[in-house]
Amino acid sequence: MQDQPAAHDLVTAVREFLEKVAMPKLEGHDAFHARVAANALAIVERELAIAPMDNAAELTRLTGLLGHDGDLVELNEELCAEIRAGRMTLETPHLADHLWATTLTKLSIDQPRYAAYKRAIESTASLDA
């Protein structure tokens, strides 16, 4: 077990330094790359916050779909082989739901402002309502 602050909070501190202290002093290409760097750290922050729980859920779904245990990489590779061979299709129970859930997790980490993601989240909320 590591000491405080948590990795997530260290990354936040670095991102805030970039945004609040470094970036205002930069211009042109350097300012652009600092913005890209701050965005990359924001991805890391979201991954540290979201991935543990969502990846565990993905593993549970994969285990159910494929009928046996394994790690995330092995099971994803097996799922790929099943889809490639046409043994699992969109008609396979729970496959489409699994792919949607996994993809929404990726977007929630990588690009939560992507318009198609925001649209999907809104429609999920209205389905739940």
Binding site: H33, A37, L99, W100, I109, D110, Y114, Y117, S123
Partner: peptide
């Protein structure tokens, strides 16, 4: 080794949601 080059890999998932919308659209 630019951050820009590295970070663009995380845009691959944008195309995955677009592909799902094309191939397996969810019922509205």
């Amino acid at each position: 080794r630019s951050v820009e080059r590295a970070a663009i890999g995380r845009r691959s998932s944008e195309t995955e949601i677009d592909l799902l919308n094309l191939l397996a659209p969810r019922k509205a």
